[in-house]
Design a protein around this nucleic acid. Sequence first.
DNA 1: GAAAACATTTTACAAATGATAAATAATCAG
DNA 2: CTGATTATTTATCATTTGTAAAATGTTTTC
Lengths: 186, 186
Amino acid sequence: MDLVSYFQTIVPLSPTAQDALEALITTRSYRKNDIIQEIGSTCRTLYIVKSGCARIFYWKDGNDITEHFSFPQELIVRAESLFTGKPTSKGIQAITDTELYAIDSLALFKLYDQHHDIERLFRILFEQEYVNTIKRIESLQFHTAKERYLELLKSTQYVQHIPLKYIASYLGITQVSLSRIRADLS
Amino acid sequence: MDLVSYFQTIVPLSPTAQDALEALITTRSYRKNDIIQEIGSTCRTLYIVKSGCARIFYWKDGNDITEHFSFPQELIVRAESLFTGKPTSKGIQAITDTELYAIDSLALFKLYDQHHDIERLFRILFEQEYVNTIKRIESLQFHTAKERYLELLKSTQYVQHIPLKYIASYLGITQVSLSRIRADLS
DNA sequence: GAAAACATTTTACAAATGATAAATAATCAG
DNA sequence: CTGATTATTTATCATTTGTAAAATGTTTTC
């Protein structure tokens, strides 16, 4: 499905809003492991996954930490930079070969002024992200690592394409620990 | 400071928007430990703390878990219910004697249609909440319990009024474990 | 296809945290 | 004020997770 059509399922958009938004959307392709946005940069582009999957990651004490995975139709944005205009110590990387829809953030924010419905659309999209993030906190706060792993497995078939080391840090545990959990399960 | 004046520091509001918003804001007082919103209810009111502090909490396996603390000038809202219209297994409780600004959510959403600037104001307020939540994930994902406790201590002086059992579950550890951490620090 | 690079599992031991119960300390209601 | 209730600390032991290093498995590159 076309991206603007998908947006229409969330908020009805006026024809001019549709056109204005359409004009901003480009498609970009990345190979497995490509860096999509560099660590330390400022977010100036919103992405939505068209195909493949990608992750938000950062370095902490010499370890590569995965903070977030995105799969088709999902946003992938370093929100703490997008909303503050400040650089972030996080980056975005393609996990598999990946196609993304890209939207320039400054151009989008200009559209907010002219098109109330576009601002509303992205308000709602980010509200949904916010709710997902709250659920993630529940999970990190009071589920065991094993429970969190099983939850992730259920969430999407794409998990099988993701290297374990990425999954381990996403779950907040070491690779060794995840390996033990997997050994226990079989 | 008056709440609408505070809002103006975030987004300029037209005089009619100011009046419309002002008309929605009421003040409510609660005594320590009062339940502000019941577990299982649907969120129909946004609150902003005027004085005191409050928490969002839920029950998990017979344990009372604190998910969030709010202090003066901060929002306290069960977002997963506000944005979905569905009931939530979370509640809101006053930790100390507390005064809240209250805004009816359905009335607010109606104002969104008439006042682009009001929708923008709350878009930005919730974007800020979203960013805070992302920071919380970083903290839960890769800081030790001791680091998370020290971080919380730094964040606000109000922490001293909060019972340890609430703090422990907020940090994702048991009360006993938090007690040990405190013993280590002195 | 073989060497090199990278990913995952296993092992052994240390440290952190959980569970339970009991001991103290602090707060509240009459 | 005093007993009752609630909150916090301490102790013990079990479990989970971390760290480091080595072994094994898989993928990539030439």
